[in-house]
Amino acid sequence: MNTALAETALPQPTLETPGFAELVEAYGRDLHRYAYRLSGNLHTAEDLVQDTLLRAWRSLDRLQNRDAVKGWLFTIVRRENARRFQRSQGQVSDIPTEEVPDSHVTYDTSTEAFVLRRAIRTLPVEYRDPLVLQVLHGLSQQEIADRLGLTSAGVGTRLFRARQKLRACLGERG
């Protein structure tokens, strides 16, 4: 084996890694429930948790605030779930585009909708995610809290601030 390669290779994660076994024990079940809620599939949830724990293990030495570990792990699960969709690119079809039926999906192309979408995109992610989950996906404050690994009060604060920032961006009062 090449010694230069052996020196740069990452060691395999083990439960003996300092702090790793405690993370698995303390948060494994919560991570699995959250991953299942995101994916809706038991096997996919298991894969998400496994990928999450691997990423957490690799970054454990960079974790600065041990009190924020649960939110950190939930964020990793959420990002792993998003990566799952990024990896699954659709198959290219041999059907000519002229033969593909028109979609029945309609989009609001008004100026107001454009301005609102642009304003939402300018929000910081910590405010945009809860707002989109509530307005577009219809989730309750508690469901958003569970999904993002926050408290219900924290979600309420972020929603309030998101609306304030949107009003400021759109030049409204209130």
Rank of each mutant, 00 (worst) to 15 (best):
Y27I: 04
T111Q: 08
D61L: 07
T17R: 07
Q164G: 00
T14S: 08
Q164F: 01
D51S: 10
Q12W: 10
L166R: 03
Q64K: 09
R163S: 03
G28P: 09
L10C: 12
R167M: 08
R37K: 15
H43Y: 14
T75F: 09
L10D: 12
G19C: 03
Q142D: 13
E25H: 08
I95V: 12
E80W: 08
L63N: 05
Y107R: 05
R78N: 04
T111E: 13
D102C: 00
P11Q: 06
A162L: 00
T52Q: 09
L159T: 00
T75E: 11
K70L: 15
T97G: 15
L150I: 02
G90P: 13
L136E: 04
A82W: 06
Y36W: 12
L131G: 01
R79G: 01
V132A: 01
E80Q: 15
Q50D: 02
Q141T: 11
L5K: 13
L150K: 03
L63P: 07
G149T: 05
R62F: 10
V132P: 00
R37P: 12
T109K: 04
D108N: 08
Y127C: 06
N41H: 13
C169E: 13
N41A: 14
A56R: 09
R66V: 15
T52D: 10
E7T: 10
T109L: 13
T109P: 04
R78H: 11
V24L: 08
R158Y: 03
P101K: 00
V105R: 02
Q12S: 11
L150E: 05
W57L: 12
G71V: 02
Q12H: 10
W72A: 07
A56N: 11
E16Q: 05
C169H: 08
R158N: 03
Q50F: 06
T75V: 03
T111R: 05
V115H: 04
R66G: 12
L170N: 02
R147Y: 02
N65L: 11
F160L: 01
S39D: 14
R33E: 09
G154P: 00
T106D: 00
Q89K: 14
R87Y: 08
S110E: 05
R29T: 15
H137K: 09
T52V: 12
C169A: 13
R173T: 14
P11M: 02
P124I: 03
I120E: 07
K165G: 03
L139V: 02
E172D: 09
V24G: 01
E98K: 08
E112V: 12
L38D: 14
I95Y: 07
F114H: 06
P101V: 00
N65S: 07
L139P: 04
L53M: 13
F114R: 05
R37N: 14
T75R: 13
S39P: 07
S152D: 10
V132M: 09
A4P: 04
G138H: 03
Q164E: 05
G156A: 10
T111C: 03
E98R: 13
D51R: 07
